[in-house]
Simulated scan of single mutants.
Amino acid sequence: MSISAEVRRAWIVNVVRELGSVRVADLAGRLRIPAVTVRRDIAALAAEGTLRRSHGVVSIPGDAGAETGAGREYVVGMLVPTVGSYFDEVIAGARAATAAAGVRLVLGISPYEARDDHAQAERLLESGVDGLLVAPNWLPGGRHDEYGWLDELPVPAVLVERWASPGGPGAALDAVGSDHHHGVLLALSHLASLGHRSVTLAARDDTWTSHQVRAGYTEAVRLLGFEPQPVIDMEASLPGSGRTDIETLADRIAGSVASGVRAVLVHNDHDAIQLLPLLRARGLTLPGGLALISYDDVYAALAVPALTAVAPPKRAVGDAAAELLLKRLDCDRARPARRIRLLPGLKVRGSCGGER
């Protein structure tokens, strides 16, 4: 026989009142109710003020001995597809914001090729987090029906560097991310100021940002009246997915230069830096023979010559996403969802040539 939510929640309140405080996992075991169901019931009871959650522990508000104080009681989970590059700065921004609020941040990693976001999110929830920052492993344009769990999360969540499709999973969630279309327009506008009237794009095809960069390129070419060039596809160099053929990429860029296109935008820094010695071996020098801008600005300043780069506001994205989540946790759970787009900047360095 199924048990109504009203009855379950009454049981939960009675047990918490009896024990004073109890871990969420222990509460689920004691009541023999699935943990995910208990978490949802606790979220509803906490939202109405009947219970309080702190570090995976549930208590009655106002009980002697219960922890006091606002935001500092929270634990926030963050799910990202990778560490060691772009998302390091996003994590750093979220970490600084949560630390300033006295909130603990815990990290989950769901690798690009694994596609196990749901399982990783469940692990974070089981640890007792009060909210989630989530960067799902999806690409733009799809409905991503396998991500229906985003709409059933028992805690508030904010999408990070992702925009949900209208009507798709996560569409009702807060979201914070970089406006990559603006970033590409900055790059091509700078090249236009140097006299270039066509630009080749060399980009991946396997990540969210790569698709945004490609779409931004099409839009910027139209807005600036550039002559469109075929996009040079780059194989993924992510773990387990094969090695990027940098040699072939260098040949194709050299071919575009031979046809008169002396400017290239490369997504991302990792591949752009590997290209430099290969381009020199083909007689192409920066900035004299070729103008090159990289996208991401993770390692671009370390190249020789230092690369002009589009710099998405990675740290600011993490900071803003954490702030948005903390505000929703503290006092603003009923407000409409917000989508915040932050504009990239352009770091001008030595890799751009003059008029061509």
Results as ranks from 00 to 15, higher is better:
V261Q: 02
D332Y: 08
V257A: 11
L31P: 07
L238Q: 15
L275W: 11
T308I: 07
V261I: 04
A121E: 09
E126R: 08
L185K: 08
K314R: 15
V134T: 04
A306N: 01
V213P: 08
D251I: 07
R53N: 12
P287F: 11
E219Y: 10
G69H: 05
V57I: 15
L132Q: 07
G225Y: 12
S241E: 15
A46I: 07
I253M: 10
V199G: 05
L31V: 12
D205Y: 12
A337C: 00
L139Y: 07
D271K: 08
A192N: 01
S4L: 01
V106I: 15
T98S: 14
A300P: 00
Q212C: 11
E18I: 00
D179S: 05
P336W: 01
G77M: 06
M1V: 11
E73H: 09
A99L: 12
G148H: 07
L31Q: 05
V80W: 00
P287S: 13
K314T: 06
V298T: 14
D297L: 00
D251M: 03
D297A: 04
E73V: 13
G69K: 02
S2M: 11
Y217A: 02
T50W: 04
P111N: 10
S2D: 14
A135V: 01
V15D: 08
A236L: 13
L173Q: 10
W149L: 06
L153G: 04
A258S: 14
G289R: 02
R39L: 10
L150E: 02
A47G: 13
D251G: 05
P287W: 12
L324T: 15
L290G: 03
P305S: 13
N14L: 02
P336E: 11
L324N: 09
A281Y: 01
A121V: 14
R333K: 01
I109M: 07
G255L: 03
G255E: 13
V298I: 14
A202K: 04
T82H: 12
P154M: 01
T248I: 00
L159Q: 10
R8T: 13
L265S: 10
S198I: 05
D296Y: 11
D251Y: 07
S241V: 14
V317P: 08
S351K: 08
R8Y: 03
A220K: 05
V160Y: 06
I293G: 02
E126T: 10
E67F: 04
L194M: 09
R252A: 13
V176K: 07
Y217L: 03
E247P: 01
S256M: 08
G49C: 14
A164H: 04
G195V: 08
V129R: 05
P305A: 14
R204D: 15
V221Q: 03
D271R: 10
P156F: 03
T244D: 03
G49Q: 11
A309T: 06
L132T: 09
A97G: 02
L19Q: 15
A322C: 05
A172Y: 00
L19I: 00
G77N: 01
V160D: 02
F226Q: 10
I293P: 03
Y112M: 09
Y295R: 03
V7M: 07
G49W: 12
L326T: 01
D319N: 09
D271L: 12
H118C: 14
L185H: 13
A164Q: 06
S178V: 09
Q212P: 00
S4Q: 02
V184N: 03
L188C: 12
R32K: 11
S237V: 08
L51C: 09
A119P: 00
T285Y: 07
H190F: 11
L19P: 00
L249F: 05
R53V: 11
G29M: 07
W138C: 13
